[in-house]
Design a binder for these strands. Sequence first.
DNA 1: AATAAAATCCGGGATTTCCCGGATAAATTG
DNA 2: CAATTTATCCGGGAAATCCCGGATTTTATT
Lengths: 225, 225
Amino acid sequence: MADRIKVFHLEDYKILRDGIRFLLSQDQDIDIIGEARNATELLDYLEKNSVDVLILDIYLDGMEDWRTPDGFEICGIVTQQYPQTKVVAHSVYDDADRVAKIMRAGAMAFVSKKSGYEELIHAIKLAYAVKRYICTETSKKLKNLNEFLSGMEDTLKAENEFFSRREKIVLELMAKGYSSKDIAKELFISEKTVETHRKNMVDKACVKNTVELMAYASSRGFLKN
Amino acid sequence: MADRIKVFHLEDYKILRDGIRFLLSQDQDIDIIGEARNATELLDYLEKNSVDVLILDIYLDGMEDWRTPDGFEICGIVTQQYPQTKVVAHSVYDDADRVAKIMRAGAMAFVSKKSGYEELIHAIKLAYAVKRYICTETSKKLKNLNEFLSGMEDTLKAENEFFSRREKIVLELMAKGYSSKDIAKELFISEKTVETHRKNMVDKACVKNTVELMAYASSRGFLKN
DNA sequence: AATAAAATCCGGGATTTCCCGGATAAATTG
DNA sequence: CAATTTATCCGGGAAATCCCGGATTTTATT
């Protein structure tokens, strides 16, 4: 992460743009380089500038107008014409159909507006690292109802197999308070290997350290306990 | 924790004694120094040996016999005559009445047989450290139904207010990947103070380090996210 | 008002993690 | 079979945590 992540925000409510701009400005790695209220403004901007991550409110006002594309179309256009720009879908509607639809349209992440800004930040970082993500609430909802598995296996699979077999074992031992040295002894591998697994998981989850990794893994049900 | 925790197991089913003996042998800090099927064997043993923690199955076979004490009585006898021996109650029945009864009889912890061995290990360590504990499942069940608050306030209160206000704030920031330095800046306190809070939480939870603390706190719903 | 608990601060030294940048072999997947 | 991922291993140095043992002030609680 040498440079900051260049984020563009498409959202028709000013109060939300303002709020999110402020909240995301807190994060060291994120730069909001532009905002827009509609697709035209966004596409104009994209023609002349490079954007790492687009926060896309799927339901924009004035969508009744048949001439302007809706959120799903925008997502499709952006991901096809500007593949380096990753889309984080942001919406109040978090039902399986619409989440699946936007992901199929090429979004890297979906975050419900019910979620806090932490989720959004996390989604941005993961999207930037070309990793799919669905916010905790929505993820839980869809997982429990088992609605999602039909249309979008790959995404959930990616969630389930987020960590490798070995990494999961290391994670479990970490959760039991084992140090790298302890884990190395337990698994008959080098301490350095354990540290690598640890580091790889921290990177995969886009978190800062193993403590946050633990919070992340635990809240996402990656642990047995 | 210089010496291992000397654990005695009272349980009438052999298969359970065998299983638990094996499972607990995995833990570095725990030594199963004895087992028994009935109260007589236990009390004989206690006369001659010291026991740190007694895992007590409350409902033993042959309890119909009026001459042998039941689990609650055993608990009372042990906690009174051998106060250094802490009782971890283990039972299939996890309703409020019986949990309250066994805790009133002097048990330091209650673990449902529906729980995994990790809970049992945790209960043993907490009991050894003279801390009350009720397993996650039972705790949740009783908390939700609000049955428990009437008779045994102190115990549940201890669960709810396990961490102090300040500690909880530090915990939240830790879960976000903040280092002690980061937290210190955020809260305008010294780095050393943060480390103290950290350490105190690790001690309270009877865990080895902050990573395990995080797993513990998260699985127990101590975190917002 | 006395006692207890919580929050704050401090230091030194051992241990651990984190971060940088590697490398190799095995397994999986396309 | 080639490419990718996974699992393994390594080193050095900076940063952070852990562990030992304190201490003071503020805030309950009784």
